[in-house]
Amino acid sequence: MIAVIDYGAGNLRSVANAIARLGYQPRITSAARDLLKAQAIILPGVGAAGNTMENLRNLGLVDLLKKLIADNRPFFGVCIGLQVLFTGTEEGGWHNCLGIIPGRVKKLPDGLKVPHMGWNQVRQRVSHPLFEGIPDGADFYFVHSYYGEPEDNSLVVGETDYGITMGSVIARDNLVATQFHPEKSGEHGLKMYDNFIRRALATRTP
């Protein structure tokens, strides 16, 4: 079962539709028992990281997510789902986040239109299973005003330029996260979810 975490916000339906389109059965859920037995977990998101953290706390999911990721459960964070993995965010004053990836979430630099909204290229810094069948420099759909900057730059497997160069794909073991929205990024986006899920199902039996 592929769990799509429902924390009361975010574009759950689009993510679930993308997973269903690929022939898998997504379960939109916030129940611990579902997450515990999920073969892969997707944390989607729009809005602000601070609110998302608050929602995750209210649902009692913070410690569970930390544990599941520490145990190497396949996990995909999307947009705000990437940002909450960091130590904390500067959005709306400092808010502590999950602290799974050491580093901070910072505001995009002044001088460019914010939000960074639209299709932009992802440069593949390393060969990663997530990129299988996706050309280097392919466009993905972004919409965000903040970006995550990991202390360990080697976690950045894909990067994107918008005034600065930012990590747009982050990976560590079975944890991956994208600042863009694969579910809104056409066939390349669907391919990326498929790469993630196929790998997850291969590493874990139901």
Binding site: R13, R21, Y141, V143, K184, S185, G186
Partner: peptide
């Protein structure tokens, strides 16, 4: 919109 978002993966 519900049906479109099942088939179309763009904003």
């Amino acid at each position: 919109v519900e049906r479109i978002s099942e088939q179309v993966f763009m904003p």
